[in-house]
Write a protein that binds this DNA or RNA. Structure first.
Length: 603
DNA sequence: GCCGTTTTCGGCCCGACTGTTTTCAGTCG
């Protein structure tokens, strides 16, 4: 059982308790615990110990929930969950995923009509049986039918780049509505989450009516879910839900803060307001009837004694405590990036030539770049043997004579073989300026075996960068099992740089692992893994994720100027320490103090 | 079920829209 399994069980219990109309704060406690567990960088199992005392120090997890985590880790399930599912079939939970069906209606369907599954609900709605229920009319019944078909059709979340392609043209269209003073996309899109569930467009305007009218008339709209003067929602034909909010200019900052979220961050900020006798809502900050601010986000934060928190950090992962202490990180920006360290050419699976990639990097103003074609085991990508890299090396040398306008490093994305050896002979490795390693095969190993495989590769003295460390492909392939906490400690120990791969379907490392690895002392590179010239422009997605992982420019090696970067890669790497060689987890660090935010070092 | 610059007990964020209801419950974000 890993962290995600524990989180899933806690969420399931929250749903079941909600259907049973239990104390809503108890429900929230389970949801909070699920969230804490889900964003925890290291495995619960390594933190648990015998009595779970360290678990009870995690935010939102007390003695009881710590015990339940231990129970899940030991038995794979919870007695409480089995008890609850005796009263309420777990199949009701899928019904609650349908828009318009919440805990009350799910229970009503089950208790009064004996409906247990989504299919039974659809049958009942089609035959009109739902109309017998109190509070249920023909409109709701057909709305539920629509919700069921949308639920079946929908891709659950969109990658950030896919969401951009849909939302930005919509914003351009909406911009032409009369009376718009400001328009901006908020929500997880503004926080630059790797995937987006729905898009929130926020508008400042005196009169919301004409804006809502234009909003619902957008040609790509498939269905209008709601339309009001301040809030409207549509479902695009693609399945993406887009919400519109219109507020007066004077409330714009409070509304932007609120609709940017995250929900957990907002709740925490509002709770801080409550302690100061303030009410914070999307229209402003109020003391009694007196308005204290809300025109800008800065005013909202100032009201609760905080500095402005960049949207990428607003996940209630310690940013409020850091803001209170004036220790928010000065986040890395796209303009800090001086070079791109992973890209492919037509020598393997890239589309463009060496010369074209070099010219494109120079045109983007970089000071340096690295060519990282694949090694031989990756046959489907046309991986090369040592001879191929020597040939490419000569081509790079020749190019340099013509003065390409930036430094071009000879590199390779070397496969880590299943036993941890590298897929390139020592002689060829020695000719490269930078050795990057990655896993591309045999993903089905155990976590222990995969971790040892990678650790062995990282101990090779030539290795500088570990690329896309978990191998995930958003929406297509789960990360392979690997103990990232151990990998991060080894990276910190040896000076191997961890990659944040900017491909929107990778974004690997993700934000949670990045923050954890930073706290372990690791450093990073952000690169595009470009397979054609146009891919070089996706660097910004990698920077977004790095920011979500709390990285500053100092944490990212390819923000160094050429001279400093050259020194870094020409300095022999640190040898791994004994602890790292044995792969033994270090003694638990003194951390995870009770208060949220104390888990992160200042930056 | 958690938590403590009011507290170890009594709180726990806040508002909009819809459909059904003659005053509000349910859902959603």
């Amino acid at each position: 059982m890993d962290n995600a399994d524990v989180a899933r069980i806690f969420d399931e219990i929250a749903d079941l308790l909600e259907i049973l109309d239990e104390n809503p704060f108890r429900v929230r406690a389970y949801r909070n615990a699920a969230r804490t567990v889900r964003v925890l960088g290291e495995p619960l199992a390594s933190l648990a110990g015998e009595d779970g005392a360290a678990l009870a120090k995690l935010p939102g997890i007390g003695k009881d929930l710590a015990g339940k985590i231990l129970e899940i880790l030991k038995t794979g399930d919870l007695e409480l969950r089995r008890e609850l599912t005796k009263k309420i079939p777990a199949t009701l939970l899928e019904m609650m995923r349908v828009q318009g069906v919440g805990p009350k209606r799910a229970r009503q369907f089950y208790q009064e009509l004996g409906i247990r599954t989504l299919q039974e609900l659809e049958d009942a709605a089609r035959s009109g049986r739902l109309l017998k229920l109190r509070g249920m009319g023909p409109t709701l019944q057909s709305r539920i039918l629509q919700g069921i078909s949308a639920h079946r059709a929908r891709a659950s979340r969109y990658r950030l780049d896919e969401a951009e392609r849909q939302v930005l043209p919509f914003v351009d269209y909406l911009r032409k509505a009369p009376g718009i003073e400001i328009i901006e996309v908020a929500g997880s899109f503004r926080r630059r989450c790797d995937t987006v569930g729905d898009a929130d467009i926020l508008v400042a305007a005196a009169n919301g009516r004409p804006i809502a009218d234009r909003f619902v008339a957008y040609p790509e709209v498939g269905r209008v879910l709601a339309q009001g003067t301040t809030r409207s929602s549509v479902l695009l034909q693609s399945g993406l839900q887009v919400d519109l909010r219109v507020v007066p200019r004077v409330s714009y900052g409070a509304a932007l803060h609120y609709f940017t979220g995250s929900k957990a961050h907002n709740i925490a900020v509002r709770a801080m307001g409550v302690k100061r006798g303030l009410k914070i809502n999307e229209y402003g900050v109020y003391k009694g009837a007196r308005r204290m601010g809300g025109r800008t986000e800065e005013e909202v934060y100032r009201a609760v004694g905080l500095r402005f928190v960049p949207p990428e950090l607003r996940e209630d992962r310690g940013e409020l405590e850091a803001a209170r202490r004036g220790r928010l990180p000065d986040l890395v920006e796209l303009r800090h990036i001086r070079g791109d360290l992973q890209m492919h050419t037509d020598a393997t699976d890239g589309a463009d030539s060496l010369e074209e990639m070099v010219r494109a990097c120079r045109d983007r103003g970089y000071a340096y770049m690295a060519i990282t074609d694949h090694t031989k085991t990756l046959r489907m990508a046309g991986g090369m043997e040592g001879a191929g890299f020597r040939r490419q090396g000569r081509a790079i040398e020749k190019l340099k004579e013509r003065g390409p306008g930036l430094a071009v490093f000879k590199s390779a994305e070397v496969d880590i073989l299943p036993d941890g050896r590298l897929d390139l002979d020592e002689q060829a490795l020695g000719t490269l300026d930078i050795v990057m390693v990655a896993v591309h095969s045999k993903f089905d190993m155990t976590e222990e075996a995969m971790t040892e495989r990678v650790l062995r590769a990282l101990r090779h003295p030539n290795v500088r960068i570990f690329a896309h460390p978990t191998g995930r492909l958003l929406g297509r392939r789960d990360p392979y099992p690997i103990d990232m906490a151990r990998i991060a400690r080894a990276a910190a120990d040896t000076g191997v740089l961890l990659e944040i791969d900017a491909q929107p379907e990778r974004l690997d490392l993700d934000d949670v692992h990045t923050k954890m690895a930073k706290e372990a002392g690791a450093r990073f590179v952000i690169d595009t893994d470009a397979h054609r010239v146009a891919d070089l422009d996706i660097m910004r997605f990698g920077v977004d994720q790095a920011r979500r992982g709390w990285l500053t420019a100092d944490d990212v090696a390819n923000t160094l100027d050429l001279a400093a970067f050259r020194r870094l890669i020409e300095t022999p790497r640190r040898l791994p320490s004994a602890a790292s060689i044995k792969g033994r987890p270090r003694a638990p660090r003194k951390r995870r103090l009770k208060r949220r935010g104390r888990t992160t070092r200042g930056s």
